[in-house]
Amino acid sequence: MANGVQSASMAGTGVSARQVFEQKELGFVKRGLATALGSGMLWGLDGVILGIALAMAPFTAGATMYAAPLAGSALHDGFAGLWLAIYNLFTGRWKDIGRSLKTFPGFIVCVAALLGGPIGMGAYLLGINFAGAAYAMGISAGYPVVGAIMARLILKEKISPRVWAGILTCVAGAVILGYVPPEGGTMPHFYLGIGCSLLAAFGWGTEGVLATFGMDMVDPAVAINIREATSCVVSVLAVLPFVAGLAVFGQALITPNVVWVIALAGLAGGFSYLLWYKAFSMCGCSRCMALNITYAIWGLVFSYFLTDVAITTNLVIGAIVITIGAIMVVGNPKEMINLRAEA
């Protein structure tokens, strides 16, 4: 790394041009952290709005337990993709969508979409069915740990012991916050359910790493547009037909009050993802995944005002633990000026 010439200085201030640039870089990292937190906030809002939609007909009457959440998720991603396409149209990026799809990094973003979309979501639902919500939620909340390990291996991201501890603390907070007592009774496919929950954590964690790899060469706004569109199209063509979900999908699409709620959730979700993907390439995907978990806190806040959720002790403890973890992850932004170890 060439350190270059510090020939010019701000008149009379003694501040070199490099110092001015370093301040700019630090500002960029801090903006990245704020972007990641903003993504968590919108994701929390998205979850609450989507929850309201999924409590409405036709989602309450799916033929299988998978039909409603998968159809809702496909519709949500479809709307998110549509809103992002409008965003890209107005910011002059729309031509990059087709261009990206013709390249290898664009293909990798599509693979990330499958892992984070239909595979991650499908595996999570199967996990709940076979092993119960307690185990499925607890295990799949570990996705930032999977993501951090993959980011270390594939992207060579630098992750200090404090950041590792912060990521683990965030995950622990999410587990506490989402805790539900394990159901009694026998679960004949319990270990299959555990496997599916692990697959969900793997899918969600790997999505971020593959997307970050793709975004070395593709604009984040374009990458997330491709991700949402791919997730919707593949869900509709290859997943919903097998879970009797197409009828729910179609019915929701023609029910005006439902479709508008989902469109609104898609708006919050699309822009949450936009901020998330932008943050990946500003301050590293391992940190952003942990910071995104703060959505759970925002979800609580929005639920409190928009629905009638009861604030229980484990929700409060979980929120405090997540906050501590997030502070440990953010720590010293100066560490994030160079994200990767061997780059």
């Binding site: 010439v5 010019a8 994030m336 990767r340």
Partner: peptide, 11 residues
């Protein structure tokens, strides 16, 4: 930040 490019002279 991702290490794809680096800075040289800054003026």
């Amino acid at each position: 930040a991702g290490g794809l490019i680096e800075t040289n002279d800054i003026e």
